[in-house]
Amino acid sequence: MAASSAEAASPTARTGPNHGLRIFLIWLPIAVIADWLLYFVYGPHMPPGTMSTSAASQQFDIKVMSVLAAPVFAFVVVYAGYAFIVWRHREGDDTDGPPIYGHARIQATWITISAVIVLCLAAFGTYELGAFGQSSLAGAGAGEGPSPIWKPNGTPLQIQVIAQQWRFTYRYPQYGGFETTALYLPVGQPIQFNVTSIDVIHDFWAYQLGVKADANPGVNNIAYTTVEHTGTFEVRCDELCGLWHGAMFNQGNVVSVAAFQAWAHKTEIKLASVTKMLPAYATSYDPTTIAQLNKAMVKAGIAGANGYYYPPQDPVQP
């Protein structure tokens, strides 16, 4: 089948214009311009920005994917558009098209090119995880579970993220294990988020930091990043967790190392009485300790969803 078509295609090609060349010449400038725009003009503004190492690596991946995707998309659209204009059915023409059943070389070329693109992408994605010793990439900000395999160099600052319906609280084990809803990070230091949940599955998504890790009950899900610029960032719950899932968000702050130390020491002292009531710091919490946790939270004045639009008494447990 495939072999016979090659001959069927060539005689017509001699008499008519070279459609393949035309399509290529229309496609090439479109692909080049689209790639240039995507990489150099729009690229630096692509999500999720460059606030941290993991955000930057995600942005770079999205940029690379876009640069590969645009020519593929453009090729199919240009080819189809050309076909619809040039090879459309003309009024009064009742004949059929040429019986082309296939074309071995074109088929082989298509399969080879798509396989090469795909395998390169897979190798690229694996590299971007830090699988080849790139410690700065450290799993690209994705939650790696209790025993991470891609880690940054040095001793990271540990922050435990405790998710529950419907708020995030944060514990700082290196500062006496106090718990608060305020999220402060120092700039330029590797940070280790230990994400866990005390009820259902949530997801800790620090958008501008490029950190996303599911909060599973009973599991310590570790994600790394190093923040490179001071400023604020959004934290949102990214896994449907019930009624007020959409209201489960807050803001984090990235400050200088000195400012962070000052804040941490001050808060440690301020919350000392609450910290004493808390269960001892652990990578995950048994449901039996939840009542204890909540009692402490009430004393610290933290209750209800952390959403901006709701007074704390609004959300009710389902």
Partner: peptide, 28 residues
């Protein structure tokens, strides 16, 4: 990651088939 990306190869076949069928057709 690699298995997921591999699946775009057979999916791409559907486009090869379409574009090949459009070639010098009389599209109604």
């Amino acid at each position: 990651m690699v298995t997921t990306e591999l699946i775009s190869i057979p999916t791409g076949f559907i486009y090869l088939v379409a574009l090949g069928t459009f070639w010098k057709a009389k599209i109604r």
